[in-house]
Design a protein around this nucleic acid. Structure first.
Lengths: 180, 180
DNA sequence: TAAACGCAGACTAAGTTAGTCCTCGTTAAT
DNA sequence: ATTAACGAGGACTAACTTAGTCTGCGTTTA
């Protein structure tokens, strides 16, 4: 399995739908359903985005998620860190402290500063993080907009509107018709 | 756990000892022992480096490992790929194919080219790999040499020489003294 | 011929990931 | 006032990965 998880993938896909929804809220179930992924799994991802301020949640019956700030101010790095929690690329085991030549105590020169190998890994991690920080949700969304036909967005609006009405229409009917 | 494993860490530390051993072979047990790590675990790492040509193995009683080429021509990326096997940073699940708006077949424009999210991740992965490819074993070894005192290398040579003699001195004595 | 090697595979324990399910408090519409 | 839709959170599971051990095999040198 890869280091950037499918949770991040689902999260970003979900966020892209919010970008295209004109500031209106979508519930986590709707976001999951329109993408064909597990609703209960997505429901564990969005609270993390909420804690990071990437989305704003509204509770209750017509609640859901909106973007917490402008799509241009949400970077991929922020999303990855929000969902995965800033796990380092490399976890230095400090092998240099275990060298058998150091009988009776590790000398200062050996442990001063960062381990040379760790330094290389940190540099590589920074390169990756910089690349992720250079991409925003807004840019990717508009890249997608240029690719998709206008009918697609019309279909989405229609789908969202229908959801908006049917989810209130279901209310107030206590389902007592089956095994009673 | 991190994406760059401790196997890579142990492998690089081991290779650095080979750099400082003047082309002479060290057995995997010696490399493990001088670093205070598990011999049996290290014994699983070095065959991977051998397959990649990073080290050359010699079998038999005085065998062991040497560098397969000049330390300046061994990059960190090569080592990581040799040990971990080129695992991608991100494994695209092709969520775009599951969109619920695509009733009855996914349109061509949606699946043509690389997924926009995947493209960002690939870019980040490339940045990381480029950083790893820019660092060689030789550079890190000489960086370490400037830090360590001359006495350290003298200690190492002494240790290696003693190993060289004692491991043949043990030969030829069938140990039959215990429970017989 | 024995011991020191590299090599390969089976095995285990712990941790992570993807995913499900259930309960709770909140909110809007009836 | 209920009811059902919502977010939030925790317990739980199955599959996979990682770190590490152990055993057996073929090779090589003394």
């Amino acid at each position: 399995m890869a280091h950037i998880t499918t949770s991040v993938e689902y999260g970003i896909h979900g966020l892209l739908w919010l970008v295209g929804n004109d500031g209106k809220a979508l519930s986590s179930r709707e976001i999951a359903e329109i993408q064909g992924i597990s609703p209960s799994f997505l429901a564990k991802i969005f609270p993390k985005l909420e804690k990071a301020g990437i989305v704003a949640a509204s509770e209750g019956v017509r609640g859901g998620y909106r973007l917490g700030r402008a799509a241009d101010e949400i970077t991929f790095l922020q999303i990855v860190d929000a969902i995965e929690g800033e796990k380092p690329l490399f976890d230095c085991q400090e092998v240099r402290e275990r060298c058998a030549l150091f009988t009776g105590g590790v000398p200062g020169w050996a442990t001063s500063g960062t381990c040379a190998i760790h330094a290389v890994m940190k540099q590589a991690e920074k390169a990756m993080r910089d690349a992720l920080a250079a991409q925003t949700l807004g840019e990717v969304a508009s890249r997608f907009s240029r690719k998709a036909p206008e009918s697609f967005f019309a279909d989405f609006k229609e789908w969202a509107d229908e959801r908006q009405t049917t989810r209130t229409a279901r209310t107030g009917r206590p389902v007592r018709d089956g095994p009673s």
